[in-house]
């Protein structure tokens, strides 16, 4: 097993772990968004979905643990990379250069850390229901009412939108970067990969923001 450790902790190996876990998280986001869209179908649909999820606690917890480990590994490896990269590059140039690379690619750790702080708030908000005393008066599965109450507040709406926009910035570089990391690159497909990863990040951001916006504007009652 020493060989595996050496590979996964090498510069290229670390990136492989980051790319694999990153794409795993993207997979989760797609599934999560699909579930959330049930809110547009109606209160029964989304509350039923929440009830079904919690009916099988064992499966739910296996999935949760998987997701938590993927998230944790992604963060641990990216922090390790960022730290080592800082050591490799101790002194910046006196004159900042004209931009040689995209903003998204240069600020992955910042967009990542804001996503992390959002995820923590999001869990406290809708999973552990700690942020609003009104939630205690609701039934256990009344996700719909919880969303309706929360997204009347413009601050919460703005924070959600801002966070998914930063997620979009993270993924606009992250998704196509994973393909580069896996070595999947070909002149014939490069443009397709780049454009579809930007399209997917925009779709995710629009999709996730559509829910708080619709509720705030009263399109969902």
């Amino acid at each position: 097993m020493l060989w595996l450790k050496r590979i996964l902790f090498s510069s290229v190996g670390c990136k492989l772990v980051v790319a694999l876990t990153g794409l795993g998280l993207v997979g989760f986001l797609v599934a999560h968004l699909a579930g959330n869209f049930l809110v547009f179908v109606g209160p029964e649909a989304i509350n039923d979905y929440a009830r079904q999820l919690r009916k099988f606690p064992l499966i739910l917890w296996i999935l949760r643990l998987g997701l938590i480990s993927i998230f944790f590994i992604h963060i641990a490896f990216t922090i390790r990379l960022t730290r080592l990269n800082k050591i490799s590059n101790p002194q910046k140039y006196a004159v900042p250069s004209r931009e040689l690379s995209s903003f998204a690619s240069r600020s992955m750790i910042l967009s990542g850390l804001t996503v992390l702080s959002f995820v923590l708030y999001h869990l406290a908000h809708l999973t552990f229901r700690l942020t609003n005393p009104l939630f205690e008066q609701l039934g256990e599965y009344d996700v719909y009412a919880m969303l309706l109450i929360s997204f009347q507040n413009p601050i919460i709406v703005c924070f959600y939108i801002l966070s998914v926009c930063l997620l979009m910035v993270h993924l606009s570089h992250g998704i196509s970067s994973s393909f580069q990391t896996f070595g999947i690159k070909h002149l014939k497909y490069n443009k397709i990969v780049e454009n579809s990863s930007i399209a997917l990040s925009i779709f995710l951001a629009l999709g996730f923001s559509s829910i708080p916006i619709s509720i705030f504007l009263g399109l969902i009652q």
Partner: peptide
């Protein structure tokens, strides 16, 4: 790759500044 890492160079974030 092993020597690259031992010599203290960092890892690739695929920013593309190098090719520029």
């Amino acid at each position: 790759i092993s020597t690259h890492d031992k010599e203290g160079f960092g890892s690739c974030t695929n920013t593309g500044a190098c090719e520029a």
